[in-house]
């Protein structure tokens, strides 16, 4: 089983966790992306939504679980092929929520850049932007090191 351990700076990551936890709270009863339904059937659509929501909540919990007491003791998170899918989806859901809640005013091209200078981002959204970027980097590491489809390419 492949396993990646990521060493992080606790004091740099801790403030980002406040944003990530708030985004996770916001997502508890809401889908990150509004579902589009193939049927015009209320009961079916409710089932569709509740199953997506259950999966989303499970993925987000898995991600938050990385940043428990062990992280604050050791300063590292461990990702393996058992939790990588959940973490990829959890990062995606949280990034969408952070964008929706805090970063709507930031131009799309800036959001896609990897090395944005801090002064390009307004003070009040620097921490959410850093959380957004941090989750992107976690996803990138997973995709580079643990994506089984990449290994076949």
């Amino acid at each position: 089983m492949k396993r990646v351990e990521i060493k992080l700076n606790i004091s740099a990551v801790a403030p980002l966790l406040d944003v990530i936890k708030q985004a996770a709270d916001d997502l508890r009863g809401n889908l990150a992306i509004r579902a589009t339904f193939p049927e015009n059937d209320e009961e079916f659509n409710e089932t569709w939504t509740s199953e997506l929501l259950a999966g989303q909540n499970s993925d987000v919990r898995e991600l938050l679980g990385l940043f428990g007491s062990e992280f604050f003791a050791e300063g590292s998170i461990a990702i393996d092929s058992h939790n990588s899918d959940s973490l990829l989806r959890g990062c995606s859901a949280l990034r969408i929520q952070i964008l929706t809640h805090w970063l709507q005013g930031i131009p799309a091209d800036l959001l896609e850049e990897e090395d944005v200078p801090p002064e390009a981002i307004a003070d009040e959204v620097r921490v959410p932007f850093a959380a957004y970027t941090f989750l992107d980097q976690v996803q990138k590491i997973i995709l580079e090191h643990l994506d089984p489809t990449a290994a076949e390419a």
């Binding site: 990150a32 992306i33 589009t36 193939p38 049927e39 999966g55 989806r89 995606s92 859901a93 969408i96």
Partner: peptide, 20 residues
């Protein structure tokens, strides 16, 4: 239609915007 719906559901699980 049924298979298309299954695919869209799977894509939405991964937070892609997908429609049938």
């Amino acid at each position: 239609r049924e298979q298309a719906e299954a695919y869209v559901f799977a894509l939405q699980q991964w937070h892609l915007t997908a429609v049938v």
